Amino acid sequence: MDLFSRSWTALRTAVAQLPDEDFAKPSGCAGWLVRDLVCHLVIDAQDILITLVTPAEAEPTRDAVTYWDIAATPPTGDEPLDALTVRLAAAYEGPGLLKFHLDDVGSAAGRAAGLTDPGLRVGTRGEVLTAGDYLRAYVLEWTLHHLDLVAHHPDAAGPPAEGLARSREMLERIVGAAFPASFSDRAALLIGTGRRATTDEEKAELGELAAKLPLYLG
């Protein structure tokens, strides 16, 4: 729960500190500008608020690792929600309003997470998880999107080191194998999720694992 808070706070702080002109630049999400990514974070915050007040009686069907669905192909931006995100982002009058909305809804989502019993069962996407597992899954979400946010902005602060390490651990559990020890946490996450291509040397180090990558998480 604490790592969720630190990762989410770091991501929202990085958004707040970005110059307005950077919102029209590409993000690390293929086909999305920074403003589209930030709008997606607003939607994520809304989803967290909704999920944490949607209790479930059934036994959990997913945990922080199995929460993720794996797609065979990269996202194209044609999915209805992806396309809606881009239209919503364009509807904001400027980055200032988008920053304000993320801070407003995002702060509320952070407070709600801090007040929630980790053992509470919640329902989302037709599945049941404990609130703790649901929020742990979002550590990976926040870390990947923090990397997306700063992909073309080398001077911007990146995600916390502990968030990178935990996210790498989760990705390794999802894929069922460990990345080479020579890979940094950042490299493992970028390569593992198709955000960066491997070099010939990296591919050789990956060995059989290279055939399982990248993973497109949804």
Results as ranks from 00 to 15, higher is better:
L120I: 02
L102G: 04
R87G: 05
L81W: 15
A90K: 14
A113W: 04
V105T: 10
D117E: 04
L115N: 12
L84H: 09
R125A: 12
A89F: 06
L84E: 15
L102H: 07
R121K: 10
S107I: 04
G114N: 06
L102Q: 11
A109M: 11
G94V: 02
L88F: 08
T85P: 01
V86P: 00
D103N: 09
A112Y: 08
T124W: 06
E79G: 11
L84N: 13
R111I: 13
T116L: 03
E79A: 15
G114I: 12
E93Y: 00
P80W: 09
V105A: 01
F100P: 02
A91P: 01
G96E: 03
L115D: 13
L84K: 13
D104R: 10
D82M: 13
T85D: 02
R87S: 15
A91W: 12
P80L: 11
P95W: 03
A112L: 06
L81Q: 15
L98N: 07
A90R: 14
A83D: 14
G106F: 12
D82R: 14
G110I: 14
H101T: 03
F100N: 01
T124K: 07
P80T: 13
V105P: 01
T116I: 09
L88A: 05
P118E: 01
T85H: 07
A109L: 09
D104S: 13
T124V: 09
F100I: 00
P80A: 14
V122Q: 04
A91V: 10
G106M: 11
L97N: 07
A89R: 07
A90I: 05
D104L: 09
D103V: 01
G94I: 01
E93D: 12
T85C: 04
K99V: 04
A113S: 11
L102P: 07
E93A: 12
A91M: 07
G106C: 09
V86I: 15
R87I: 14
L102D: 04
D103E: 04
S107E: 09
L81K: 14
R125E: 11
G96C: 02
D78A: 13
A90E: 14
